[in-house]
Design a protein around this nucleic acid. Sequence first.
DNA 1: TTAGGGTTAG
Length: 684
Amino acid sequence: MRLASTKQDPVTFLSLIRQCIDTKSISDIMKVQTQIMKSGFLVGFGDKLIVGYIKCGGVVDARKLFDELPKRHIVTWNSMISTHIGHKRTKEAIGLYKKMILEGVFPDEYTFSSIFKGFSEMGSLREGQRAHGFSIILGLEASNVFVGSALVNMYSKFGQMRDAKLVSDRVVKRDVVLFTALIVGYSQHDEDREALAIFVSMINEGVKANEYTFASILIACGNVENLGNGKLIHGLIIKSGFESVVASQTSLLTMYSKCGLIDDSLKVFKRFANPNLVTWTSLIVGLVQNGKEEVALTKFRQMTRNSINPNAFTLSSVLRACSSIAMVEEGKQIHAIVTKHGLDRDTYCGAALVGLYGKCGSTEMARLIFDDIIELDVVSMNSMMYGYAQNGLGHEALELFNRMKDLGLQPNDATFVSVLLACNNAGLIEEGCQIFSSMKKNHNIELTRDHYACMADLLGRSGRLKEAEALIEQVRNPDVVLWRSLISACGIHGKVKMAERIKDKVLNLAPGDEGTHVLLSNIYASTGNWSQVIEMKTTMREMRLKKDPAMTWVDIDREVHTFMAGDWSHPRSKEILETLKELMERVKSVGYVPNTRFVLQNLEEEKKERSLYYHSEKLAIAFALWRTSNKTTSITIFKNLRVCGDCHNWIKYVSRVVNKEIISRDSKRFHHFKNGLCSCGDYW
DNA sequence: TTAGGGTTAG
């Protein structure tokens, strides 16, 4: 901008400022300001120059000039405050608010409409309440709906829904914005039914819902799985002409998936011409929640192919999908994407990664990620503790549990599932009992089935069978799984009579429960009670109950190889058999003795030994050792059932003679075999 | 010459 050097008049200055606003040029305003100051007009034009700076995005320059002005109009104060709030300069905004009061300028309805947001962003409830009091004194709380909405918002953010409601009740002319703010507040604080009630009263007051209201109320319907109302609102959206608004459609998609109608979510999704990141993420999350993890992963790939970059929300959800169905390799690929986006240290992604690595037995990797997370929360701590629990590292889990208290984090019900499981898997009986009894007393945690299951298993396995039974009887409707763990404990401690008594209880509950039949048959077999075994098996045949065949699989170079006991269909059977033979000789030479107690069939001793020889995990380990190079330091195998005592012992010897770590995930937990020892300490 | 609301995650 070129300025004429001749004398300038007020009209010219005004038009010059307007020109600067149009071209959004801060440097031009500075030139105009210099000119104005030279002409001695600053007092008259200060406010207008500030508006100019603000409109061009020059918050800092506006503030500089603002501080130089001897007198400022209330409008200028308000503009300064709202601009600072808008630019996330919350502290400065609150500073300005205090400064104006000190200088004797009273805040008005415009000031209050923006300043309350500042207090909620700063987390200063007390100061917010003080300002609220001031607005009441000035008669602005109830008379102006802008002020009222801002207050409702502030109290909602602080979770003070009672206060939010009280304010809203006092506001004279309530509009759709105020109602929406209240609905969102209730819904975000798990009071979705109240949110629905507010929606109804809004309609009754004759206030029309808009796309924002619809988006929020659908989330509330989804949260309480109120499909009926959700569908009604879907109809209202169509009637009100908001059918193509992205936000309300995304909420519609979420509502259907939360109500379990994932196909309807997919239908809604199909109508999007250009779904955005939030829409894609909502769909992916919905798929994961409805057990469609593979589809979720396909959608994720489709999304990235469409050049939409994932964020922490998307990636943490996809990672959860991978770990929930043990897609370890896919999970590792997603980890690479997380790293590429610099999100390893994000609370949500970090927690999901910890969960993934914990689940595949790499607690060390999980811990490395965990230690790097910038802001630890209950979930990330729970994930790490659960990882330790699954892998039998009880003391490590307890140490984190204590650290949680030091960090001032409130443990939740999931925390106790992890901690109790950790105690259970590590045989920390006293610690487990103590923590269990503290749950309600000291932490006000509602006991769930999972907590009881852990505790019953812990007591049962340690031989306190009567206590375990009494505990299960405390559960309102104890399920089959709970009782089965007690039967299995009876088996460990040779209490056949008690096992039979519990079996009758279970079969009354669920006559066709094959697990119970298998358990009993195994208990009879291990005590040499072969006639009973035959009877059990006949019953099972008659009832057409089938036992899951034991299976072990191993993932090598992204190819999964599955093995069953005595199954020689693998193309490399010859090599497997040779490796197995060699391994047997080596482990026997250092002390391994086959334990035929674990053969659950009535065979001659030598045949029993042969049958142990070909258990699926032995075949899988032999194959993995043959296929991988000598440099490989660890191999991981997966089993659908629990590992038998003989294989457990055998793998310990193998880990010693081949000098490698062998990680085995069975149906209940991980075992890390190293140098002839197992991480479970032979307690599982 | 100034002001308020919505959608996604463990």
